[in-house]
Amino acid sequence: MDIFLQQLINGLTLGSVYAVVALGYTMVYGIIQLINFAHGELVMIGAMVAFTLIGVLVPAGMNPLVIVLLATACAIPVCMLIGYAMERLAYRPLRRAPRLAPLITAIGVSIILQHLALLVWSRNNLAFPQIIKTVSYHIGGATITNVQIAIMVMSVVMMAGLALLVYRTRLGTAMRATAQNAQVAGLMGIDINRMIAVTFVLGAALAAVAGVMVGSYYGIAHYQMGALLGMKAFAAAVLGGIGNLPGAMLGGLTLGVVEALGAGYIGDLTGNVFGSNYQDVFAFLVLITVLVFRPSGLLGERVGDRA
């Protein structure tokens, strides 16, 4: 039982990371039905900027918590700026283009961001300085660290904050109006371009926070780290019902837990014919099964023909 509890904790932590990245995907998708495949690169840039700042600030001998907060505070505007530039230059001109055109620009933007990061931060795996002392707590035979708790709390706070913004503010109302029908929203006096830009920038800010989280939890950053994480988070967003904020959270957590339980139990359940190597297969099979029975994800609304 303690093993099971531990696997749940592992899964929830990993799921929280997926969830925060998935929020970014889902927001952008919700408003303009675009999968921003370069979103993972924003996470990477966030981690890299934080890495540089932490490297600069640690010798100054500040409180570790202050350093991490400062690093995050710097990563956010950098990512926001890139997110804005991305939308303005690569996506906005294509808003009326065939659906797959922005997909290709997104791939292009991904390649560009990765290799710019390579130039700035080298090809090496960058080891995040281990500044926050890891403290472990024991609950019912399982271990949970302060960093894990922080990640889970952060992701919930961010989702809640985002939900508040979208459902309780004027800005959020305008965003939702744009999402529902951009043309009509425009007629109502909403600056659609601004709304879409705001969405991108908000998504980018989330990506920056996710980057700092991933970097400091796993202690490593690499210029290609965004690709895999982005793919998993995209899967999480779809699982939960893309375009739906609580769905992204639910999808992320579900994917994380499924992966952890998959790695933990497939081997024993199949007499070791399959093992942890099939962890991703297991995760994708769960995704496919869910989509076969609920073609718009766990919390998604029925969408029309968009292909």
């Binding site: 779809v238 496919i288 989509l291």
Partner: peptide, 16 residues
């Protein structure tokens, strides 16, 4: 499945 849902499932299929 349609559109982007199909995209992620086919992506998963490739990985599987």
């Amino acid at each position: 499945l349609r559109g982007d849902y199909l995209a992620i499932v086919t992506l998963g299929f490739g990985e599987i």
